[in-house]
């Protein structure tokens, strides 16, 4: 790997990191897991002047569920930590379903959930999951912290809402009100391939009636797609073949796929429809690899 020349800093505190980002004046990049940034450097698609490596910052590797049910994921929590998590399978089934499907084992050992959200790849997995769960990102800058809802955090392909001197320090999933269920299905040509299509579905139910629902789509648009209407079609009803079918059709309609070498637009819509149906039909069964 022969990237362009860059300066490398490894700060020991968040304040120091933010100061370095300010010094970089928009020409600095934060290095966390590096699983997207390093390939970009290698290919010289990205040539930042300064890399601010946050791996030595203390206390960011956590993922926890608060007593009130809120789930927090620190900026240095690796995909593999989530894959091996003992709390997620019961508390956040949609996240638990997605974790083992992110990239491949090597990427999961280094890559981070928060980094994946910041990278804002339309084909990224976590943005859909966090969107479906109604989560937000906590950004820290010189002026303190602010919360950015996931639906506003991704502003376009590979673009996020962070200021140049802000660091995303945490992702937060609000506490579910009903019993959480859901899943994540992904069609990929091979482990580690980007998703041809992936679908995240999260529902909360109380006495079998859906009280909250989120459906988000990966790989079928210029950014993660929040299929709000599809999700709304589920709320207030029990999950039946009809409501599931309606949600699946609405999700397929919300998709904005492009025809490319991974498949035609029409095909991708069909896969969205199939996956929404399969997840909702089997919400109480463990999710399996779809393809």
């Amino acid at each position: 790997m022969y990237p362009s020349r860059f300066r490398y800093e490894s700060p020991r505190s968040i304040d120091e990191a933010i100061a370095l980002l300010q010094e970089g004046g928009g020409e600095a990049k934060v290095l966390a897991g590096g699983q997207s940034l390093v390939p970009l450097l290698k290919l010289r698609f990205a040539a930042p002047e300064l890399l601010v490596d946050i791996n030595d910052l203390p206390g960011l590797g956590y993922h926890t569920v608060d007593p009130d049910g809120t789930t927090r994921i620190g900026a240095l929590c690796r995909h593999a930590d989530l894959e091996r998590s003992t709390v997620l399978p019961t508390r956040q089934p949609t996240m638990a379903a997605a974790a083992p499907l992110v990239a491949d084992p090597m990427v999961r050992n280094r890559g981070t959930l928060v980094g994946s959200l910041c990278h804002a790849d339309p084909q990224g997995d976590w943005a859909s999951v966090v969107t479906a769960l109604g989560g937000h990102v906590v950004a820290q800058g010189a002026g303190g912290r602010r919360s950015i809802p996931m639906a506003q955090f991704v502003t376009g392909p590979f673009q996020n809402a962070l200021g140049y001197d802000e660091i995303a320090v945490e992702a937060v999933i609000p506490a579910p009100h009903g019993k959480p269920a859901g899943g994540y299905l992904k069609l990929e040509r091979r482990v580690g391939d980007f998703a041809t299509v992936a679908v995240a579905v999260a529902v909360e139910r109380s006495h079998s009636v859906v009280t909250r629902a989120g459906i988000a789509l990966t790989g079928v648009g210029g950014a993660t797609i929040n299929a709000v209407e599809a999700a709304q079609a589920l709320v207030g009803h029990p999950l039946t073949a009809r409501t599931i079918g309606d949600a699946a059709d609405l999700a397929a309609r919300a998709a904005q796929p492009r025809t490319d070498h991974r498949g035609s637009a029409e095909y991708k819509r069909q896969v969205v429809r199939t996956f929404v149906k399969r997840i909702l039909t089997g919400v109480n069964e463990p999710t399996r690899k779809a393809a």
Binding site: L187, T196, R258, D260, H261, S264, Y267
Partner: peptide, 25 residues
């Protein structure tokens, strides 16, 4: 035999021939 090519054959009931096209809208 990419999944979309198999699906096309299944649903459209025609042969799917040639190099995978790099199709765009």
């Amino acid at each position: 035999l990419l999944p979309d090519r198999v699906y096309e054959a299944l649903t459209k009931r025609h042969d799917v021939s040639g190099a995978p096209p790099v199709r765009t809208d």
